[in-house]
Write a protein that binds this DNA or RNA. Structure first.
Lengths: 107, 107
DNA sequence: CCGCATCCTAAACGATACTG
DNA sequence: CAGTATCGTTTAGGATGCGG
């Protein structure tokens, strides 16, 4: 657990710190029903730079929402998947999506 | 609707843009079952400065999650309450809170 | 293939003082 | 009471190039 937790006195804030940020929601969502390799994620999350992808994945990993499995092969292979804690968020993200979709179509 | 919507191609991002930020979740939450005056909100959201409170309320208002009612009295009185769209978010925030609480007690 | 290092910009947030 | 105004700090995010 990182430093942010210490000051996250409020559960709402705590949750937002963990799944907020520009790409975390999208990454968790695309990982919802299968693991993915780094390159697959890079293609799936349109517009993300390698730096941000790595950085975001590291944060998700530190928060134990995503796990990282390295295969010692050449060429390298790394797979990312949701942890059980991460999976608990999927229904929640699903609802967020529904709400978002509904709002977006209000025009 | 503001400019952010245009680039929010993804519903997850769209939702996060609307309820993310340091205080939005907390403000929506404290407004869940009654309207509140500016000063009440200021006391309820510990640590917020008047600048951030006003700024955040204006954004929530622009996104039609909160409505602002001004009473033309002396001294001034302004009441904030959830709109129906804002109310739709409450069950979602409730779940976020539950998840957050559960995670926070994992230590 | 899967990153890391460096530098940089922009946006969010904060401190403080003041006002109709 | 319910805000504004100004300025400063901090952090998130982006561009680009290199490396095992």
């Amino acid at each position: 657990m990182n430093k942010k937790n210490v000051i996250a006195y409020c559960p709402v804030d705590y949750a937002f710190k963990r799944i907020g940020g520009k790409y975390k929601g999208r990454i968790l969502w695309v990982l919802r029903d299968s693991c993915m390799r780094y390159g697959e994620l890079k293609r799936a999350i349109i517009g993300i730079t390698p730096k941000m992808l790595t950085q975001t994945l590291r944060e998700l990993e530190a928060d134990e929402l995503v796990s990282r499995k390295v295969y010692l092969e050449v060429p390298p292979k790394v797979e990312y998947s949701l942890t059980s804690t991460g999976e608990e968020l999927i229904p929640l993200i699903k609802q967020l999506r529904s709400w978002g979709e509904k709002q977006m179509s209000r025009n």
